[in-house]
Amino acid sequence: MSTSSPEHAIDRMEDRLARLPLRERKKLRTRRAIQDHALRLFAAQGYDETTVEQIAAAAEISPSTFFRYFPTKEDVVITDEYDPIMAEAIREQPAELPPIDALRAMLREILPQLFETDLDALKTRLRITAEVPALRGRTFEGMRATFTVLSEAFAERTGRAPDDPDVEAFSWAVLGVLQAALYRLLDGKTTYEDLPAQIDHNLRFLAQGCPL
């Protein structure tokens, strides 16, 4: 875990956001603002008891604007803005690093920053996901966006196409070991403090060919 201050972590995340295209930055910030209001309402009155209309009113937007950013109420829990930030950080890793080592290096940098800036939101999202069966079912669908980002980043590093069967298989394998770490957290087998180390262990295990 990083020993830098939360202010430095926020600065680093803001620097990464600033390097994204303006349209993407505006979209991410609006989506995050809506999500913050939604998570606050979910924590206060429950997921099922909170309506899209209430979220929209709290965010001072119309319900139609809500649906432009989140197709369903479920999406406001399972969607986040981390994918483009992680993709940029993967691309910044030294070209000689194999894809899995580049991913591990990126996560060792990004996860502590996310924990310092967004831990409360992450805890709320994961708790709601664990409690609401429909959200657990939607988690796999939500992984497709991350799968696309990973496939494109790995394809760039290897000179292959994003839809290359090996690139796709590798991206799904990565997502599988990441999900394994998250489910250990949801099942109470590890803690938030130990999650970065658990994720790194799982990726190292994958790189070794998952020997048992």
Rank of each mutant, 00 (worst) to 15 (best):
D15N: 07
L122C: 00
A155D: 08
D120R: 06
H8V: 10
P84K: 04
I61L: 10
R19P: 05
T148F: 09
R29L: 14
P112K: 09
D200C: 15
Y82H: 05
V77I: 10
F170N: 01
H37T: 08
A130H: 02
D118M: 00
M106R: 01
D194L: 05
I110C: 05
Q179H: 06
L114Y: 00
E14D: 07
P94M: 00
S2A: 05
Y192T: 01
K189T: 00
L206D: 07
I34Y: 09
T129F: 03
A18G: 15
R144A: 03
D163K: 09
Q45C: 11
Q208N: 09
E88N: 07
H8N: 06
E131A: 09
V177E: 13
T51M: 11
A169L: 15
M86P: 00
E88T: 07
Y47I: 06
R23T: 14
R19D: 12
L203P: 01
L22E: 15
K27M: 10
R40F: 08
V177A: 12
D101E: 15
R40K: 15
D11R: 00
Y192P: 01
K73N: 03
I10W: 02
I55R: 11
E109H: 04
E156F: 01
D120M: 03
G46Q: 05
A145P: 07
D80M: 03
P84L: 02
K26R: 15
R68K: 13
P162N: 06
G159L: 04
F115Y: 09
K26Y: 12
T124D: 12
A18P: 13
Q113E: 12
K26T: 05
E81R: 07
T129H: 02
P63W: 12
G176K: 06
F154K: 02
A161W: 04
R104D: 13
A173G: 14
H8G: 00
F67V: 08
A173M: 12
I78P: 01
A145T: 14
R12F: 06
E7T: 10
R160T: 14
V177K: 13
T124N: 04
T124G: 01
D200T: 14
G159I: 05
D163N: 15
D80K: 07
L182G: 02
S2M: 05
T117I: 06
R136C: 09
E109N: 04
E24D: 15
T139V: 08
S64K: 09
T117E: 15
V174Y: 01
A130S: 06
L41N: 00
R31K: 14
A33M: 15
D166M: 13
P112I: 08
Q113K: 04
Q45Y: 12
Y69R: 00
H8L: 11
R144Q: 10
T79D: 11
F67A: 06
Q54L: 10
V77G: 02
E49Q: 14
Q113S: 08
S151E: 11
R12W: 05
D48T: 03
G159T: 06
F170M: 11
A102S: 08
A207V: 04
G209H: 11
S2T: 05
T51C: 09
S2Q: 05
V76P: 02
F70P: 02
A102D: 03
A33V: 06
A95K: 11
P84D: 02
D194S: 08
F115S: 11
A169H: 15
L41V: 00
Q198F: 00
T79S: 09
M13L: 13
T129G: 02
D48E: 14
